[in-house]
Structure formats: structure tokens, C-alpha cells
């Protein structure tokens, strides 16, 4: 699988964010899915994954001023914070934080890249297809609820769901 192309201007973005916090938005957008996936693989559920992901980004933003560029991708720094956040969380739950490093070595990076790619491909779908994918799979709404929201028949939503999945499958195929 082709890894997602790494943004070459990490350093510029970091320096911009250090000068003006609103530029952190760029770093956030570039790395959100990877951090979320990293956390979600180890979290008990969506809510826990969201809480821990939020914690990682809050910590990253709070300590960004002290970050010194040494050529390492920004995502590596974020993974470091995420590991600490997870370790603290596991410690609180009585789990062994050492499992984190084992888990990391078991092909975790490929899965993270694939999920991040999938999330970006969902955003590239046509708006109505994207809406069905988000409502149906991510928010796990019923066909009836989605049909009511979009003002279309249940049959039409099922067809839209089929087209959206086919489109995603094709897009994934082109990326791999």
C-alpha cells in the first residue's frame, strides 16, 4: 500500500503555529486521522478514543512553544504524546502499559495509514454519498432515519449507500 504522502512543510507549519496559534489548524487537519486511529486501536470505544485524542491535541498545543525542530516528522511527536496519554489511561485502568510498544510493532503503522487514507477518501466523496456514509456507518443511524433526514425514499438511500461504497472501493483500489 502506498503510504499517504507526507507533507514536506512540517517545519514551516510548526513555526507558523508557534508564532500564531490559529496556524495550528493546519497541523491538526494533517494529523488528526492518524492520531485518532492510533488511539482508537487501543481504546475501548468511540467515546474513550475521542476523549484521549482530544487530550493528545490539547497537550500538543500547550507544549508546542517548546517544540524544537530536529527533522523528525511532527506526527512522531504526536505519537509520543499519544503513547504517554494512553499509558496514563491504561495505568488508571490497571492495564499493563508495556503492551503499547508490543502493539506498535505488530503492523500498526500500515493500519493507521490505511484508516487515515480511508477517512480522507470519505471526505472526497460526493456530498450526498458522504452524508450517507457518515450517517450510516460512523453515526450508525438506520436507513429510515437517513431517508427522513435527506427527504428521500429508503430505497434511494440504499442505492446511494451502494454507490458510495463502490466509489470508495474504487478510490481505495487506486491508492493501493
Amino acid at each position: 500500500m502506498k503510504a499517504l504522502e507526507r507533507e514536506p512543510d512540517d517545519r514551516m507549519l510548526i513555526e507558523a503555529a508557534q508564532r500564531e496559534r490559529s496556524h495550528f489548524a493546519e497541523l491538526y487537519e494533517q494529523n488528526f486521522h492518524r492520531v485518532y486511529t492510533f488511539i482508537a486501536r487501543r481504546a475501548a470505544g468511540r467515546e474513550e478514543a475521542q476523549d484521549l485524542t482530544a487530550e493528545v491535541f490539547h497537550q500538543a498545543l500547550a507544549s508546542l512553544e517548546t517544540f524544537k525542530w530536529q527533522g523528525t516528522p511532527f506526527i512522531a511527536w504526536l505519537y509520543g504524546i499519544a503513547t504517554n496519554v494512553l499509558a496514563a489511561h491504561w495505568h488508571k485502568l490497571g492495564r499493563d502499559p508495556d503492551q503499547l510498544s508490543e502493539d506498535w510493532e505488530q503492523g500498526g503503522t500500515d493500519e493507521i495509514e490505511r484508516r487515515a487514507m480511508l477517512a480522507e477518501l470519505v471526505e472526497s466523496l460526493l456530498p450526498d454519498q458522504r452524508m450517507v456514509i457518515v450517517r450510516r456507518f460512523i453515526e450508525q443511524r438506520s436507513i429510515r432515519e437517513v431517508a427522513q433526514e435527506l427527504g428521500r425514499s429508503e430505497g434511494a438511500i440504499k442505492q446511494l449507500q451502494l454507490r458510495a461504497l463502490e466509489s470508495l472501493r474504487d478510490k481505495v483500489g487506486r491508492k493501493i
Binding site: 486521522h33 475521542q50 490539547h58
Partner: peptide
């Protein structure tokens, strides 16, 4: 795989919160 993706609403809310 889609089931485990984060909700776009969470992503955008967290961004607003951070900034």
C-alpha cells in the same frame, strides 16, 4: 472499517475547541 472512523462532527468540534 468505516464503522471505526471518527465522526466529522467530533473532528470539527475539537478543532474549534483547540483554537
Amino acid at each position: 472499517e468505516l464503522i471505526v472512523l471518527p465522526s466529522p462532527e467530533f473532528r470539527s468540534r475539537l478543532k474549534d475547541e483547540l483554537l
